[in-house]
């Protein structure tokens, strides 16, 4: 089985701030990581590989700075990693993002299962996975937390309101994987060292992907961001209740009583 895992690298949400005057994101000093749900997607793919054999390829669209994170994915067990990187890809909304990734998957060829995270931790639109599936004209199963491959078909359990459903689809298929549905493995120490020192990341630009400037990035986007603004968080009292356990309970009771 040939599997592709789409991996985005995202900034740690807690560290991201808006510059109050320029209204742009302050990127200095912000750490980034593999988008958490994508680690779950990778783990799910590696699990299937453990069971059925095959190959797991990590695919990402982004700047060269993604490299160390993609190497980490290789250290975790991916067989190969490809970065789609070109200045022309910048400023993409989900429409060209899903297109560019779909073109990467087409170039790879003969892919049986494509895994994505359910959503990213920065924008988290959840729109890229269905977009990729549509560009490729294949079935999608989103918000998946369990999967098995039986007789050349995928059976995946997805979360819906009030419960779950199990959907069966023929290969090739795209799955978006629920954040936290498994425990991503730690990279093996030796493999990590190998990935860092010897593994060569493949980088494909727009020419290698066979796409024109008009099909990608900002130019091909249907939406634009007019402005960024700080979500005004509600002002809180921040009053610390101190004292003996009895005093604390007493005070809490006083507050809660108003609502009984």
């Amino acid at each position: 089985m040939r599997m592709v895992v789409c991996v985005k690298v995202t900034p740690k949400a807690e560290q991201v701030r808006l510059d109050p005057t320029t209204k742009t994101l302050i990127r200095e000093g912000v750490e980034s990581e593999i988008n958490p749900a994508d680690k779950n997607a990778l783990e799910m793919a590696l699990n299937l590989k453990d069971k059925h054999d095959g190959e797991v390829i990590v695919l990402s669209m982004g700047p060269p700075a993604f490299e160390p994170h993609l190497k980490l994915a290789v250290a975790m067990g991916a067989d190969d990693a490809i970065l789609l990187s070109d200045r022309a890809f910048a400023g993409a909304d989900t429409y060209p993002t899903s297109f560019t990734l779909a073109m990467g998957i087409k170039k790879l060829g003969n892919v049986d299962i494509i895994f994505c995270g359910e959503g990213s931790s920065d924008a988290g639109t959840n729109q890229v996975p269905p977009g990729i599936a549509e560009w490729l004209g294949i079935p999608q199963i989103t918000f998946v937390n369990k999967v098995e491959v039986v007789d050349g078909k995928v059976r995946a359990r997805r979360t819906i309101r009030g419960g779950y459903e199990v959907v069966e689809a023929p290969l090739p298929v795209l799955l978006s994987v629920e954040l936290g549905c498994n425990t991503p493995r730690f990279p093996d120490f030796r493999r990590k060292r190998w990935a860092e020192r010897e593994f060569r990341l493949k980088v494909w630009n727009k020419n290698e992907l066979g796409v024109s400037e008009e099909q990608v990035g900002l130019k091909a986007s249907y939406t634009t961001v007019k402005e960024l603004k700080e979500a005004k968080m509600r002002e809180r009292k921040g009053e610390f209740i101190r004292g003996s356990p009895e005093q604390v309970t007493e005070k809490l009771l006083e507050i809660i009583k108003q609502y009984l």
Partner: peptide
């Protein structure tokens, strides 16, 4: 809402 909800991106379909 982005980045967990701390920042809002005002978007439109151009």
């Amino acid at each position: 809402p982005g980045f967990g909800g701390s920042i809002l991106a005002v978007c439109k379909c151009v």
